[in-house]
Design a protein around this nucleic acid. Structure first.
Lengths: 133, 133
DNA sequence: CTGTATCCCCAGAGATACTG
DNA sequence: CAGTATCTCTGGGGATACAG
C-alpha cells in the first residue's frame, strides 16, 4: 500500500474512537448484532464478568449514539430488549473486517482462541476473559 | 437459540481491543498507512496535541504488536522512520470501513469536521493531500 | 530530532449492595 | 429482571523538562 489517492480525514475518527474505544462497546455491538433482540442479562452472561453498572453505562452510551434501540415492556417481571438501529447495523458491518483480521491474526499467531478461552494465563487484565468460543 | 446456534467468537476481539481501544492507535495506524514512511515529529504534528510521551508509548505498543516497523538512522540529527508492517497494513485495510462509516455518519449528522483538520499550523504542504475532508 | 523521565489527574471499569 | 447507588482504584493520557 502506498500513498493512495483516496483521502482520509481523521477527524471523524475522533468521534468513533469515543465509541469503539470503550472497552466493551464493540463486543456489545457484535453481540447484539448477532441477535435480533437480546435482553440485558443475556448480554451480561455473554460478556463473562462485566458488571451490570458497566454494561448499563455502555448501553446508555450506545443508545445516546443512536446505535442501539431499547424497548422496554411494562411487565412483571420487567423485560427489556435491545437491538441494533440502522446505524448500529452499519457499524456492525464496518467492524466485521476488523474481527476477521483479529481472528486471522489470532489463530495464525498463537492459536489463542481454541476453546480454551476460559483459562488464559497471563493475558493483560484489561482483557476480558471470554468463556465461549 | 441464544446459546450455541448463532454465536460468534469474541475471543479474538480481546486482542484488537487492546490495540484499537488505545485512544490514538487507529489514528496512528491510519496516518502511517497513508505514508510509506513517516517520522516521529510528522506524526506528532498531525495528531494535533498528542504529547511525545503518549505517542512514544503507543508507538512502542504497536511495534510490540508487530504492526509498525521502526527504522532508525544513525545520523545527526537522528532520523527515525515508521512504516506499517504487513500486519499493520492489513489492519489499516480492516479499519477502513470503520472510517468510512464514521465519515458518513459525521457529515450526515453534524458536519463536525469542518475544516479544522485543514489548518493545523506547521503542517507541510506535501501531507495536505490526505487532509481533505 | 527523537525520544525518556517524572508527576498529576480523572474518567472508566470493577465490586457489591440495593430498588422498582 | 433490569437496572441504580456508591465507593474504590488503576492506569491511560497530558504537561513539562530533560537527555542522547
Amino acid at each position: 500500500m502506498e500513498n493512495n489517492s483516496n483521502h482520509i480525514c481523521l477527524c471523524p475518527l475522533e468521534g468513533i474512537i469515543n465509541i469503539i474505544a470503550k472497552k466493551w462497546a464493540i463486543l456489545i455491538i457484535s453481540i447484539i448484532g448477532h441477535h435480533e433482540k437480546i435482553r440485558f442479562n443475556d448480554i451480561m452472561q455473554r460478556l463473562n464478568g462485566i458488571s451490570p453498572k458497566t454494561l448499563s453505562d455502555v448501553l446508555k452510551d450506545l443508545q445516546k449514539e443512536n446505535l442501539i434501540h431499547r424497548e422496554a415492556f411494562s411487565e412483571i417481571p420487567p423485560r427489556v430488549e435491545y437491538s441494533l438501529t440502522d446505524d448500529g447495523k452499519q457499524l456492525c458491518e464496518a467492524v466485521r473486517p476488523l474481527i476477521r483480521w483479529a481472528e486471522k491474526r489470532d489463530t495464525a499467531d498463537k492459536h489463542r482462541c481454541r476453546g480454551t478461552c476460559h483459562d488464559k494465563p497471563g493475558l493483560s487484565k484489561k482483557v476480558m476473559t471470554q468463556k465461549k468460543c
